[in-house]
Design a protein around this nucleic acid. Structure first.
Length: 967
DNA sequence: AGAGGGTGACC
DNA sequence: ATTATGT
DNA sequence: ACATAATGGTCACCCTCT
């Protein structure tokens, strides 16, 4: 086996990293090397859970817990725990450290089998049968996890700390780090992207906000200082769980951060930690600093003032207009300059503070309102639309039809750079917006273009969206080129991101709504020249936010809400904008649940109900007084065209008394001859709404499973109890075989009953259960909220129950955004021992902590190959880089599917290969070699079992099991 | 006309 | 969809 | 708790190229 040869510096770098990671390599034979990472892989078993457990389970208090605590409790527990005296924390920490050492020793000293311990519980075979092994696993896993989790949580901060120290060392010790970094410039090396070694958190802001930060540095030292200190503080806070030495550092840095004024020693510290970051970013920053400085210079003075006040005074925090405005402002009635938006975005991007983001946007919107002519709602409306990256209400459905590829082409065209260069920049920057901006700023612009305005940008976006047909792509590209040509400073960045459909400034619709509300309140205050006192204002703001959010979730149309807001203000808004059949409302969402016990915990003593969670498509069906029927998707897309059959079926299913209504339901593919529900994959074969679908042509029929009633005969029901809504639903609708059913439900309350019902639901081809509060306000329908009043219970959430596989990492994809400079996703394969080949099965991109990603980079990067190895059967997969197949991960999945691209188990079940639905990373299996990975036969078997499990329910019509029909 | 890439919808 | 993270 | 942003597979549809 040939490992890719690298130059000497790479090797030394590797050695260093290997040492740091305590990655031990054990030679098993000449051809195989087992890498054992000892890092947080193991802690990750429970993912999110681990974080909660950290708070929840002090070592003293564990013991066999009947079930895991509810999320709410964990959250609460977290707060409690944080207040814990330091002493205790320290103790805990110490213990955990010991533990870790133990583990380490064990690892080093024993054979693979030894190190597996309980973690290897499934032995070499992680493939589990959910229905036989389930309960056992649960039993075993649950009591064991409290013991494990503290160790887990302790290791994470520790890893962070380690990294901080590392940086220091590198700085001090003649810059080992520098060597390895600068190596990226060395011609022989396979161009390693410059990589920040600080903990991901430290680089939190990343290239993107960097520019903004840099600006600030130019104009305001103190501010920068504070920012840096804050960053460091975070790192330190994370690290403080460790040795005393670090603690000193922490103390210093924290103090500095708190006072935001201290300099001197502390600053040095900061410098050290931050330096490599600067090093890396120097180039990028300096290119953009110019404009930035220019823009901001003239108001730096005011800003200092404002900054100070803002931090002390919540009220003042809301008025940052000067910060957000562009030099010279703009005239009342003039179009909103896009530069003002870009500037605001940059400021928003530069902070992680939610309140600050909101207040910045509020200020911008307020400016827009102030400078709009009487009766001009469009300025504000368009501004808002750009902020949320949409062109019209969802249910209108207008798409840009622009993706990365076209964008790359356009950027290439407008900057005259080759596609290859753009692509490599993208890899480096992790953001096409930045690439565009940098490319642009490198060019000498001869003429200063006419400034972009919001209406102009908006109109162009719309034109892009509306162009179709022959040569439309060229047209789109040329519009983009034109737009980019007119960009100044940071504008290109945000234009491009808008086109990508993600602003990525840590601000999305929710926050925009709040800002909109706040701006409206403040505008009102100004107009009335009132000056509310602090409390009054605060409560007004809060109320406004609440009103706007709730109005919007019932009538999600800025086209309607924004003008109404300007016209009648917050006070009259609710009256003016109400739930309207024909306009989809945001559906209520459910929280995932990790154990049945959690459900009981949450709903203890309350009445609740379990319903089947059907595996189909969410469908909100509206009927207006005039008989018009509309079907809307979960994302408020109008699916009426896609479901002409539903529209046609519906009249049979309602009773005389029912005139207008809105129901919440799931549309599921059904086999009309057997009455069996079909898997989601079948449903997705239906034609979409882009062309008019004729009922006769429909191959895949659907049955509607209704579970909620939101509006009936002119009356909204959102604020009624679920019991009542359900009663009305059953009263006013009637099930029709194969067409319309009520979601099967069970109101039992014991663990056993729920478990049984869950199993049953899976047998009937469902994903699991929805558990809902029945009475009290908690049972009301809360549009768009992912509330704990609805829980979803799926078998693969349940700890230790879902299907998990051990797969080999054979490829990597460069990450974007916050995953810049690490792999953002990976290609996995199973291993076929017979043919001795690796068969790809899926990509995976979730389940990784930032640390895990960093560690994976370190481990896998040396395994990069020139090209795909011959024994890897790739299928359609094209990763950015291929790896030597060596690293094995445990991966969890909800389902297996037949795949048009992957090759796993090809020919065993079907000509197609098999892939995974909802794959997520669980942990590293450092006890396994690549050839110990799950094999195609096992995968085929799992697939078969899945098909069987779902078909195994015997259902016949009218078997009278009571509940509204036969399933 | 058909293949293949790109995009956006669903989950 | 799932998951991790910051406030 | 909430909001945000990383990322998954599969399908139909559109556009472009052959």
């Amino acid at each position: 086996m040939t490992v890719t040869r690298c130059d000497a510096s790479v090797e030394s770098m590797l050695a260093a990293r290997v040492a740091r990671l305590r990655l031990t390599s054990t030679s098993i034979s000449t051809s195989t090397t087992v890498y054992r990472y000892k890092y947080m892989g193991h802690q990750q078993t429970l993912g999110q859970d681990a974080r909660c457990k950290f708070f929840e389970m002090p070592p003293g208090k564990k013991g066999p817990q009947p079930h895991q605590a509810s999320l709410a409790d964990m959250w609460g527990g977290g707060k409690k725990k944080e207040k814990k005296p330091k002493e205790e924390q320290k103790e805990e920490k110490e213990k955990e450290k010991e533990k870790e050492v133990e583990e380490k020793e064990e690892k080093a000293g024993t054979s693979a089998s030894g190190s597996v311990k309980e973690e290897g519980k499934k032995g070499t075979d992680t493939v589990t049968d959910p229905f036989t092994v389930a309960s056992e696993n649960a039993k075993r896993k649950q009591p064991s996890s409290p013991a494990k989790s503290p160790a887990r949580s302790a290791q994470q901060p520790q890893a962070k700390k380690r990294r901080v120290i590392e940086s220091d060392d590198e700085e001090g010790a003649a810059g080992k780090g520098k060597v390895s970094r600068s190596r990226s410039a060395s011609p022989a090396a396979p161009a390693e992207p410059p990589r920040k070694l600080g903990p991901p958190k430290g680089k939190g802001k990343k290239p993107a906000p960097k520019a903004a930060v840099e600006e600030d540095m130019e104009m305001e030292e103190d501010d920068t200082d504070a920012r840096e200190a804050a960053t460091v503080k975070k790192e330190v806070a994370a690290a403080k769980k460790e040795v005393a030495a670090t603690k000193k550092e922490a103390a210093v840095a924290t103090k500095v951060a708190a006072s935001a004024k201290g300099k001197g020693k502390a600053k040095d510290k900061i410098k050290k930690v931050e330096e490599e970051e600067m090093e890396v970013d120097e180039a990028a920053a300096s290119t953009s600093a110019d404009e930035g400085a220019e823009e901001l210079e003239d108001e730096s003075e005011e800003e200092i003032e404002e900054e100070k006040v803002a931090s002390k005074n919540a009220e003042a925090a809301l008025d940052r207009k000067t910060e957000v405005d562009i030099p010279g402002g703009w005239k009342v009635g003039a179009p909103v300059p896009y530069a003002a938006l870009a500037k605001t975005f940059a400021l928003i991007e530069a902070t992680t503070k939610r309140i600050e983001k909101t207040s910045l946007l509020t200020s911008l919107l307020l400016l827009v309102i102030e400078r709009s002519k009487e009766g001009d709602a469009d300025s504000l409306l368009r501004t808002v639309y750009i902020c949320i990256n949409r062109l019209s209400p969802d249910y209108i459905g207008i798409e840009l039809g622009i993706g990365e590829s076209i964008l790359i082409k356009a950027i290439g065209e407008s900057t005259g750079r080759s596609l290859a260069i753009i692509k490599s920049d993208l890899k480096k920057e992790g953001d096409l917006g930045l690439v565009a901006m940098n490319s642009k700023n490198m060019q000498q612009t001869l003429f200063k273009p006419k400034p972009l305005t919001v209406p102009f940008v908006f109109a162009n976006l719309k034109e892009i969206a509306l162009s179709s047909g022959h040569s439309s792509q060229n047209k789109k590209v040329s519009i983009i080129t034109k737009l980019l040509a007119a960009c100044q400073g940071q504008e290109a960045k945000y234009i491009v991101r808008s086109l990508e459909g993600k602003l990525r400034i840590g601000l999305a619709e929710r926050t925009v709504l709040v800002a909109l509300a706040h701006a409206a309140v403040l505008a009102e205050q100004q107009r009335a020249s009132k000056k509310w006192n602090k409390e009054k204002l605060a409560s007004r703001l809060e109320e406004g936010a609440h009103v706007v959010k709730s109005v919007y979730s019932e009538l999600p149309s800025y086209d309607k809400v924004v003008p109404a807001l300007l016209e009648v203000g917050i006070a009259g808004l609710q009256e003016k904008c109400k739930l309207t059949p024909g306009v989809p409302l945001k559906p209520m969402l459910a929280k995932p649940t990790k154990a049945i016990g959690e459900v009981l915990d949450r709903f203890e003593g309350k009445r609740f109900t379990c319903e089947y969670k059907y595996d189909g498509e969410r469908a909100q069906v509206h009927r207006l007084e005039d008989g018009t029927v509309g079907v809307f998707s979960r994302n408020s897309e109008d699916m009426s065209k896609k479901y002409p059959d539903l529209v046609e079926q519906l009249p049979h299913c309602i009773k005389e008394s029912t005139k207008s209504f809105v129901i919440d339901a799931e549309a599921v593919a059904i086999d009309r001859s057997t009455g069996k529900l079909m898997p989601f994959q079948e449903l997705s074969k239906r034609e979409t709404d882009r062309k008019d679908v004729k009922v006769e042509d429909i191959q895949v029929r659907v049955c509607l499973f209704a579970f909620d009633l939101l509006y009936l005969n002119g009356e909204p029901l959102l604020h009624r109890d679920l019991t009542e809504r359900r009663e009305l639903l059953r009263e006013h609708f009637q099930p029709v075989d194969f067409e319309f059913q009520f979601a099967k439900s069970s109101d039992n309350e014991s663990t056993e009953d729920i478990q049984a019902f869950l199993d049953e639901s899976v047998k009937d081809g469902c994903e699991g259960l929805m558990v809902k509060m029945m009475e009290s306000e908690a049972s009301h329908y809360e549009p768009s909220r992912r509330s704990v009043n609805w829980l979803k219970l799926k078998k693969d959430y349940l700890a230790g129950v879902g299907d998990s596989l051990d797969l080999v990492v054979v490829g990597g994809y460069y990450g974007k955004g916050k995953r810049t400079n690490v792999y953002g996703a990976f290609l996995l394969a199973c291993y076929d021992a017979d043919s001795e080949e690796y068969q790809t099965i899926c990509k995976i991109g979730t389940g990784f902590s930032e640390e895990a990603l960093a560690a994976h980079w370190d481990v896998l990067r040396p395994l990069e190959l020139e090209k795909c190895r011959g024994d890897i059967k790739a299928g359609g997969a094209k990763p950015d880089v291929w790896f030597e197949p060596r690293v094995v991960w445990e991966v969890l999945t909800a389902d297996l599917s037949l795949s048009p691209v992957y090759t796993a188990a090809m020919g065993l079940i079907d000509q197609r290969g098999i892939s995974l639905r909802f794959p997520r990373f669980i942990r590293v299996r450092d006890d396994k070699n690549a050839d110990d990975a799950t094999g195609p036969d096992q995968i085929a078997e799992m697939y078969e079992r899945q098909v069987l499990a779902q078909g195994s329910s015997k259902k016949q019509k009218g078997d009278g099991d009571g509940d509204d029909g036969f399933w």
